[in-house]
Each structure stands twice: as structure tokens, then as C-alpha cells.
Amino acid sequence: MSEKTKKSGLGQEILTLLKSNIREYMMYIALILIMGFFTVKTSGGFIQARNLANLVNQAGYVAILAIGMTIILILKHIDLSVGYVAGFSGAVAAVLMTKHGMNEWIAILAVLVMGLLIGVYQGLLVTKMGVPAFVTTLAGMFIFRGLLNLTLQETGTIIIPNKSFNELSNGFVPDIPAGTSFHLLTMLIGAAAVILLIFLQVKTRKNKQKYQFHVMSMPIFTVKLVCLSAIIMVIVYVLASYNGIPWTAVIVGVVLFVYNYMLNKTRLGRYIYGIGGNEQAAELSGINVKKVTLMAFCSMSTLAALAGILYTSRLQSATPTAGLGFELDAIASSYIGGVAVSGGIGRVTNTIIGALVIMSLTNGMNLMGVDISYQYIVKGIIFIIAVAFDVKTRQKGR
């Protein structure tokens, strides 16, 4: 094969990959463009290590909510209560620690259990009583907003003095040789992440070849791995030049790993996609639709409680306004991340990118001093463009 023919073949393959994965690639392109725009507009301030660490901490609670919301949306339901479930959970944690002197870790566990029970309550209303999820969770939004206000009625904003609790969203993973100016452990973690990425990608490619599935050519596959590895190491290097990896990133990473594994490697994950694709067919095939749906609502409310803990930890206080608009950011992140409006399609890994898009917009506009009113308008425009693009590309795919 001539050199010209090889180049032509590679070019055609790249075009085919772009066309078949345009929805997913556009999401990454949008994130890069947004970050690049704000880097220029803030004279490099957006991309500084301190701001990147702040962005991770800001995006943490939204990412946690969006992961749970992705499962709900795949099942063609919705949960509007998550914002005030998060706010109420943070307030309960603050009261337990400050008013009752409870250990922070016991308080966190108690709040997570409370979140689970909230999920059981709302899930049973949807699955056993047949109340639509929209109505159930809209009522929940009012209920938990009221409970949040009642919890803080006497004290108002509660300042949390517990250092370990506040470190969850303000602290960083400690370095190996404490006291050095460059965070060595962060670089080692980054190198390990790159090695793991390469291993998993190569393993996935070999498995596809084994079962005679189509795979990208070796040159394009190599370029893809090099680019992904470079992006990881650049981010890691920037963080290592500051204080290293925030604990928020570790918590989000663990939740992401668990849910990604569940969706892609377990029977429960296949059930979720099956129900979202065709609920009647899933039920006829023997899947317990009500049980899976109940599990999804339990999962969502537990993650909402965790998100409330992270948000309260970041502010180092519980406030009556906590939870306002959280559900909107979570839903927008999920749809920007590629969850189909019709249900049955979505990936939690892409949802994280959606959360970064939303929070990068917020962070960048805050740095530029943009009025909050315009921030809402911009986020709304980005959201509708993403969903409209998703609908159109899926229609063409059919």
C-alpha cells in the first residue's frame, strides 16, 4: 500500500470517527473552548493552579448529584428534590456536630442513612403508589426546603468548626515527603492513572478484536492514547505545583468508578439501560422494573446527601439558601453529558464532563465579574443548544 493511500485511509477513518461520535466529541470540544476562552479573558487566571483546584471543589457536589441524576434520567424519570435534599442534609450534619457534639464521621454516616431513607420514601411513592416521579419529587422539593428552613430557624447560618469535616472540600491529599514545594504524590498518582488508562484501553481493544468488532487503526489509537495521557499529565502537573489533588476529586473519583462499573459491568447496569430503552419489553423479559426504579431513587437521595455534605464542607457552614438550583445544574450536566432525552442512553463518565462544562461557565464568569442574571442566561443557552444538538444527531443516526 502506497504512502498516499495510507494517508487517504487514515483521513477517511478520522472523518468516519468524527461523524459517528460527533455528539461525544462536541462535548469535549465545548469544554476545551470554554476553558480556553476564559483563560484568555482572565489573562491566564482561569488556568492557574489555585483556580483549577477551586473549580474541582466547586464542581464536586454538582458532579455527585449529576451521577445519580444520570441513572434517574436513563430510566426516564426525574428527581426535582435533590437540591433541597442536599441542603437539608448539610444542615442536619451541621446541627449534629455543633449542637449535639456528634463526631463528624458518625454525623456523615447518619446523614447518608437519612438520604437513603428519603430515597426509599420517594421511590415507594413512585413504584408502589404509582405517583409520577415529577409530582413526587416536586412535592419533595417543597417538603425539604421547608425542613431546611425549620432546621436553621433558631440559629440561622451555622458555622462548622470541625476541621476534618471542612477538609473534605477544602483539603488536599498529603504529599509523601511533607514540606516540599512540589507535590510528588500527585505526579505519581497521575503517572499511575496514565498507565491504568493505557492498560484498560489496550485490553478493551484486544477484546473487541477477539470478537471481531470494528476497532480504530493502530496509528489513530496511539494518537488518542498520547493525547489523553498528555491532558492528564498537564492537569496533574498544574495541581502538583499548588497543593496537589483535592479530597473532593478523590471522593468524586470513587463514586464515578463505582457507578461506571455498575452500569457497564453488572447485571443491574444492563437492567437500567434495558428499562430506559423499553420498559414494557424489560418487564416481559423478567426484569423487576419497580425494584430497579426504587434502587435508583435510593441511590439518588443518598448521593444528594453526600453532595450536601460536600457543599456544606466547602462553605464551612450550613445556610438556609443551600440547595437552591442544585437540581437544575445536575439535570443540565447530565443532558450536556449525553443522556438521551428519550431515556435509555447515558454514561456517568460523560456526565462528569457535563458538570465541568456547567461549573467552568460559572467559575469563569465569576472571575470576569459577570452579573448573576447574565450567568443564568448563558447557562440556559448552552443547555438548550446541547439538547437540541443531541436530538438532531440522534435523529440523523436513525
Score class of each variant (00 low, 15 high):
394 R>M: 11
262 M>Y: 00
201 Q>H: 06
389 F>M: 05
388 A>V: 14
219 P>S: 08
197 L>H: 02
41 K>S: 11
275 I>S: 04
350 N>M: 13
68 G>A: 15
197 L>A: 11
165 F>R: 12
359 M>R: 10
372 I>T: 13
281 A>Y: 02
396 K>Y: 08
1 M>V: 11
328 L>P: 09
280 Q>E: 11
48 Q>F: 05
211 Y>T: 00
77 H>E: 03
233 M>Q: 08
312 T>Y: 02
121 Y>S: 05
380 G>F: 07
183 H>S: 07
391 V>L: 13
12 Q>W: 05
82 V>M: 01
21 N>A: 12
88 F>P: 13
230 A>Y: 02
322 A>Q: 11
273 Y>A: 13
271 Y>N: 13
368 M>A: 10
198 I>Y: 09
202 V>Y: 07
208 K>M: 12
192 A>K: 10
295 M>V: 10
175 D>N: 15
170 N>D: 04
363 N>L: 05
224 K>C: 08
31 L>R: 00
131 V>S: 00
205 R>M: 00
391 V>F: 06
368 M>V: 07
210 K>E: 00
327 E>D: 06
69 M>F: 03
191 A>M: 13
170 N>M: 09
344 G>A: 05
21 N>D: 14
142 F>V: 04
271 Y>H: 15
320 P>D: 08
31 L>G: 01
56 V>P: 07
350 N>V: 01
245 I>P: 03
317 S>Y: 04
259 Y>W: 07
53 A>I: 06
388 A>N: 09
43 S>E: 06
395 Q>D: 14
65 L>R: 05
199 F>T: 01
79 D>P: 06
375 Q>G: 14
324 L>W: 04
304 A>I: 07
195 I>P: 03
321 T>N: 11
134 F>R: 06
